[in-house]
Write a protein that binds this DNA or RNA. Structure first.
Lengths: 172, 172
DNA sequence: TATCGACATGTCAAGAGTGGAAGGTAGAGT
DNA sequence: ACTCTACCTTCCACTCTTGACATGTCGATA
C-alpha cells in the first residue's frame, strides 16, 4: 500500500503526469520502491477518485497533470507519523544462502563471490552518484542524501559480508 | 517465484507436512521470506502436481507428509546455479525517508530515532540467538550461521545509519 | 467423559505487482 | 511531406500475497 503514498510524496513538490511519475520511479525511487507503469496509472486514477489528488491541467497527447490536494498532503503526513513502516523484507539473495548446502563447496563459493562482485558494483555506482550530485541545504537534498548514504552503507555491508562468508565455506 | 524453491529447500533434509513447513517459515525463514499458511498449502499442492514432491506418508488428522523427489532436487539446484537472484528490494522504512521533508525536523528526528531503536532491538535478538545456538560443522549450521551473520551486520548497519541520519536533520 | 489446545488442511476474496499489448498524438529532423 | 522518436494513457491477464473463514481430529487433563 506504500505505492499510494509514494505517489503522494512525489507530488508534494510539483504537479506531475503519470508519465513524469513513471520516470521518477525509474530513477530516484527504483532502488527503494520499484513500480510499473500499469500500477502507477491505476493508482493515480484511484487517488483522484478519492480526492487525494486532482487533475490540474490537461496537456497535449492526453496528458493529465495531477496536483496534490490538502487532503492528500494530510494523508501523507498521517501515513508518515501514525503508521509503522512495514518491515517485512524478502531477500532472494539470502534465501538462497540457506540452501547452498545442496551444492558443492566450490559452487557455493562461486555464488558468494558473485554476490560480492554485484554489491561492489552497486556500491561504486552509488558512490559515483553521490560525488556527481551537488548537495545543498534543501530538504530534498538532506533526505535524498540520507537515503543515498543508506544505500552506500548497505552495499558496502553486503560486499564485506559476502567476502567473509566465502571464507567460511570449507574448502573440500 | 522463490516460495516454491524455499519449500523444496526445506524438504531436502527430511520429509515434512504443510504444518511443519509453516512453522519452519515462521521461525527460521521469517526474516528472509515470510509466507502465509494459504500460500504454503497452495504451493505444496502445485509442487506435488508437477512431481517435484510426493506425498510419502499420511498421518493422523489428515496430515500429509511430503518428500522431495529427484526432479525436485534437480530443480532446486538449477534454481541456485542457473538463475540470478532477484534483487528488487522494497523498503518502506527508506521510502519514508524521501518524504520526511513534509514533516517538522523534530518529527523527522523522531522517526529516525524510532528506526534506530527498532534496529537495535532486532540486533540484540539476533545476537542472543547466535549465542544460544550450538554451532557445529554441519552444512546447515555453516550456512545458517552465514545467514545469521548477515542479519547481525544488517541490523547493526541500520542502527548506525539511523543514528547518523538523525544528526543530519537540521535542529530548527 | 467433556473439553480444550495443538494439530492439520482447505478455500475464498481482495489487493499488490508483473508484463505486455494496444492505441494514439506532438514535435523535431530530414 | 514524411517519418521517427518520444510522449502519454488505458486495458488486460496473470501470478503473488494477505487475511480470514471453515472444518475437522487427536491427545492430554480435569
Amino acid at each position: 500500500m506504500s505505492l499510494r503514498h509514494a505517489l503522494l510524496g512525489l507530488l508534494v513538490d510539483h504537479p506531475a503526469s503519470g508519465y513524469d511519475l513513471l520516470k521518477a520511479f525509474d530513477t530516484s525511487l527504483a532502488n527503494v520502491w520499484p513500480a510499473t507503469q500499469s500500477q502507477i496509472y491505476g493508482e493515480l486514477t484511484k487517488l483522484a477518485d478519492n480526492g487525494l489528488i486532482v487533475v490540474s491541467e490537461q496537456g497535449p497527447r492526453g496528458r493529465k497533470e495531477y496536483t496534490l490536494t490538502d487532503t492528500g498532503l494530510a494523508e501523507l503526513r498521517r501515513w508518515l507519523i501514525e503508521t509503522e513502516p512495514q518491515r517485512t523484507t524478502r531477500s532472494d539473495v539470502l534465501l538462497r544462502v540457506f540452501f547452498l548446502g545442496v551444492l558443492t563447496p566450490q559452487q557455493a563459493r562461486d555464488y558468494l563471490d558473485s554476490q560480492a562482485v554485484h554489491a561492489a558494483e552497486l556500491h561504486a555506482n552509488l558512490k559515483a552518484l553521490d560525488a556527481a550530485i551537488e548537495w545543498d541545504d534543501e530538504d530534498l537534498s538532506v533526505y535524498g542524501r540520507i537515503a543515498l548514504e543508506y544505500g552506500q552503507r548497505f552495499t558496502a555491508m553486503q560486499q564485506e559480508w559476502a567476502e567473509w562468508a566465502r571464507t567460511q565455506v570449507r574448502s573440500t
